[in-house]
Amino acid sequence: MSVEILERLYGNIYYLTSVILFVIGFHTMLTHRNLIKKLMALNIMDTAIFLFFVAIGYREGGQAPILLPGVERFVNPVPSALILTGIVISVSFTAFALALVVLLHKHYGTIDSDEIIAIRGKKYV
């Protein structure tokens, strides 16, 4: 029984890891008030999804899908290719967010979200 569970866990180790990473990211996102940390959390979440995506295309013992003699087992190249794009997007998102944080720090003198709110005041109405 327990062996079975372990086997299943092992079989889905990448998915499992990605979910755990995702949750870690979310946890950080929620609990930290520092904007930089929030961004890091965002990146962790992104990474989790990337891992998940790449894991879909992975095949045990597979190689890069280049037509060379002697290699017969390929991984699915599509997810990797997509994730490359995803990484680019993630990088630009992060960079942009960092630039905004710099601006925020210039305007408010802090990068703590609570303090920013306190300075800005609750202007909901």
Binding site: R33, N34, I36, D114
Partner: peptide, 12 residues
Amino acid sequence: LEGIGSTASTFS
């Protein structure tokens, strides 16, 4: 930079 952020133990 981190300031109080690093000591954020209370949930806000």
